[in-house]
């Protein structure tokens, strides 16, 4: 799964996560479906607003400073370094999802970038034809068939589902970086990494987020739709992802406005 999808949500609602729709095959047509997926909507909307305020007060201003003051090449290297730190988690999940080829690809990427790429500061592997992808334990649970449960928005954590929360916890323990820091009693560096990563991704997708916000008539509903669709797409990554989104036939409606007006047209 492309990191983009993961991180755009991470920052959109102040920080996504990963979670999965319980029924990836459903092609919802609206109100009933939304009620089913988001039974705690009143609570979620309040948390969403809370996160938006925090984002506006803290994250967005700092992200703007970072974007405007750090050289583009340095931003690219920092981003690449952070992606490299997360490769072991992707590697573990590749194999847990029985994606052996992708697992070996991730392993190669990690080795190449950690050595020739100077601890990941340069994405040498991508230039050698090994593109980056990202997997997490939330996806793994989805692929194993675990239902995601209802959509939740939590303070600071943002968009999530019960499955995604379990996944995030598992990913924490799958990370050698976190293991090392906990083992050597340097937990503060875990928080430093989390903070830096949040800032970098927020800066990286600042324009996309701004556009998304400015072009939504209901920003909460837009983020929820984006998040749930994204999770469905992630689970289906290796199968038939395209079939999840509406195809051209979905736009061929069987009635026209005249049918609606009936005899009164």
């Amino acid at each position: 799964m492309k990191s983009y999808r993961f991180y755009i949500f991470f920052v959109l609602a102040f920080l996504g996560g990963c979670g999965h729709n319980s029924d990836p095959s459903s092609n919802k047509d609206s109100v009933e479906s939304i009620k089913n997926q988001d039974p705690f909507e009143p609570f979620n909307r309040k948390m969403f607003e809370f996160n938006r305020v925090l984002d506006g007060l803290i994250l967005e201003p700092f992200a703007n400073v970072y974007r405007n003051s750090v050289h583009e090449n340095a931003q690219r290297s920092i981003s690449s370094f952070l992606y490299n730190l997360a490769e072991p988690v992707t590697l573990a999940n590749d194999f847990l999802q029985a994606k052996k080829d992708r697992g070996f690809e991730t392993f190669s990427r990690f080795m190449i970038n950690t050595t020739f790429g100077l601890f990941g500061l340069f994405d040498v592997a991508e230039k050698l034809g090994l593109p980056r992808h990202q997997e997490d334990f939330g996806q793994t649970l989805g692929i194993w068939g675990v239902p995601s449960g209802p959509y939740l928005v939590l303070p600071l954590i943002g968009s999530s589902t019960p499955t995604s929360l379990v996944g995030r916890t598992a990913d924490f323990y799958l990370s050698p970086y976190n293991y090392y820091m906990v083992h050597y009693k340097k937990r503060q560096y875990i928080y430093v990494r989390l903070g830096v990563e949040t800032l970098v991704r927020r800066a990286q997708y600042a324009d996309d987020i701004k556009n998304f916000r400015e072009n939504s008539i209901d920003f909460y509903a837009a983020v929820r739709s984006f998040y749930l669709q994204n999770q469905k797409a992630q689970i289906q990554d290796t199968t038939d992802r395209e079939s999840l989104a509406p195809g051209s036939d979905a736009f061929n409606l069987n009635d026209d406005d005249a049918d609606i007006l009936g005899e009164f047209k």
Partner: peptide
């Protein structure tokens, strides 16, 4: 429709409209 990383813009718009 445009799908950005698998996310359908039309479906997102429909979800927003349904909410409103």
């Amino acid at each position: 429709d445009l799908r950005v990383e698998g996310v359908s813009q039309a479906e997102k718009e429909r979800d927003e409209a349904a909410s409103i």
